[in-house]
Amino acid sequence: MACGRPSRVAPVPGLGLTLGLTLAWVGLVVVIPLAALAIKPWELGVAGVAQSLAEPRVLSALAVSFGAALAASIINLPLGLLLAWALVRLDFPGRRVLDSVIDLPFALPTAVAGIALTALFAPNGWLGVPLMAAFGWQIAYTRAGIAVALMFVGLPFIVRTVEPVLRDMGKDAEEAAATLGAIRPQTLGRVVLPTLAPALLTGFGLACARAVGEYGSVIFIAGNLPMATEIAPLLIVIRLEQFDYAGAAAVGLAMLCLSFTILLGLNLLQRLVRRGRR
């Protein structure tokens, strides 16, 4: 028979084995457990979930978590940009060390960061004393303390997403702008910032997502006062300790949904920024 049967060939072998392993691994460790989170709250019924989430303490905890995460990430934007700029564009003694230190929040266990920040900002700490003396600010055991911890956790995300884009950008565009008669602030505002905007937004989103769920570095410095400095993850822990599984899951699900809404919004914003540039 002249007409041969079709033959399917994978240029690189091993798809079956590796994909099977991967799916089993992802399914068992990620998909099934997260499905539990999505299903469990509804044991309370729709009204029950709404009631469970409408408790003032829950609303307050969600507001504290998301508010502090947003505030910390917004403050981190200029700081992260500054550090990325210093890493890419400036040459000064200690730049290599700075480069390694940026990743410290990734490598330092969160509980360690938590007690360290608390020690620093406590009323008798290295930074707590001067801040109180100079401005009358108390950081530890207030919402400001939560934001400080979240800033520490989120900073590398912004630096590490902006840095490669800045490196990639080179100086060509700026030099071109200069030849076209732009003065330095014009160049920075019209050429550099718009180029970095998508990366800044991505970094902001990553930092925010991480900060919203952060637990270890926050609970030591937060004070954990219900209705004031209690974060949503802590509320989950408390409900679990009371064996209120469904209530805990409801808070967890609400957190995830809010996070994804923020990420989705940022994604749309990023598309707008990109389209505006074309």
């Binding site: 099934i32 457990p33 997260l34 539990a36 989170l37 469990k40 969160t110 997502a209 991480r210 919203v212 769920g213 952060e214 637990y215 270890g216 993850p233 802590l234 989950i236 822990v237 679990l240 599984y245 805990a248 899951a249 967890g252 957190m255 995830l256 996070s259 990420l263």
Partner: peptide, 14 residues
């Protein structure tokens, strides 16, 4: 992008 507390929670749920 999932809170570590939620990571613990899901296994308690199961």
């Amino acid at each position: 992008s999932v809170s570590p507390v939620i990571a613990g929670l899901i296994f308690v749920l199961i």
